[in-house]
Design a protein around this nucleic acid. Structure first.
Lengths: 209, 209
DNA sequence: CAGCTAAGTTCAATGACCGAACTGAAGTTG
DNA sequence: CAACTTCAGTTCGGTCATTGAACTTAGCTG
């Protein structure tokens, strides 16, 4: 048996793990929920070797959890985005994250908190809102900095962009920091369906020269 | 960075994956929920190399998800059992299993179905009973053979024992003579309590000649 | 006491992962 | 327009993890 498959197991969990059970894969998907869409942004935020990241993205596309499409504004820059199949992993991802928060807590409290957009309640391990008791999917979840967020860590542009409140699944919009916008702004999903300004919109990723 | 830690990640999901993200670990925990408690039964059912299984059980004990205690009847035979911390992984484990069932389905249907003991409803990805809409923990879940169960595979004694309906978390017991109900029974309070000794006996598996 | 079983450990071969360097295509700058 | 930069990977040698088989240790059992 290859050290990545589970040949003898005839079981839904084993089949799920053959798709998302390898190292880095669930963190790639987490970042996709956070709105990261470009190879270099995944790489910056994860710190995974480029070869491994490349291979994980390819298998996630092959299994239909992500799509890989050229960016309309910069066709040479592929955009990775969650499919419905990928978004369906949200309950599992959140449950595992919630267990980690409960049973492997970070000093100072969680780095990020996840709340129901319409009522502000926090979610439990089964994605039920603690306030209104409704099931909440990723589209209704706002991620905000938590009390334990360490501003010293993660000074890169991606981590900085992720310190702002944002809605899960919404693309991270990449804007050049340069005062003279010579480059055409890439079109993203956020541009097609912009979040109202008073609500939580897409977060901006400012590049430091 | 060692190929098992996620040093740069300051995130609850990464911390969870450092505990349960390695190969075989979640399948070991699945088997623990199924009631498997002895090294050789894990090994038979998983087919993992003994060295890896030994290492995974040790780290699960170190992290407090399992206990390792001598069997009262046979002190030289350690018994591995879930702790509360391990049982708290149920929502994550079930959500991942449910995703696999939905999005990486087995031909012929699921091998096992998980129903709420008190009403017989099936559980969704977030452990909510489809019939009574209640949150269901592992102690209230009965696992039964599903339509896709392949009797040809897994002729070993552990797999045979697991083809009978059983309550999650309860030690796996096999009675050679006593016929078991083929459908999940509605809940009675007696099911929650420890099974009387005369009904369970020592943990013996019937060996197929 | 010889044989059996359960629970591991040891070991050589293979595969996966890591980090750094490299490639090639496209856009940007002087 | 040539040099430079950015991006999205690929290549590669060294290290670590996993595999499968053989071996060890300890307590029964006939």
């Amino acid at each position: 048996m290859l050290p990545k498959s589970y040949d003898g197991q005839d079981c839904s969990l084993a089949r799920a793990l053959e798709v998302v059970g390898e190292r880095w894969t669930l963190l790639v998907l987490r970042d996709a929920f956070y709105g990261i869409r470009h190879f270099s942004d995944f790489q910056t935020h994860l710190g995974a070797p480029r070869a491994v990241l490349s291979e994980r993205l390819r298998t996630l596309v092959e299994h239909g959890l992500l799509t890989r499409r050229p960016d309309p504004g910069q066709p040479s820059r592929p955009v990775y985005a969650l499919t419905d199949k990928g978004r369906a992993l949200w309950p599992a991802l959140h449950a595992l994250r919630s267990w980690g928060e409960q049973h492997a807590p970070a000093p100072g409290g969680p780095r990020r908190v996840f709340v129901h957009d319409s009522c502000g309640g926090e979610l439990d391990a089964t994605s039920v809102c603690g306030t209104c008791r409704q099931q909440v999917g990723p589209e209704q979840v706002l991620a905000s900095p938590g009390p334990g967020l360490n501003p010293g860590l993660g000074q890169d542009a991606v981590s900085t962009a992720l310190t702002r409140p944002h809605r899960l699944g919404q693309p991270l919009t990449v804007l050049a920091a340069a005062p003279h916008p010579t480059r055409p702004r890439p079109t993203t999903q956020a541009d097609v369906r912009p979040t109202p300004p008073e609500a939580i919109g897409p977060h901006r990723l400012t590049r430091v020269p």
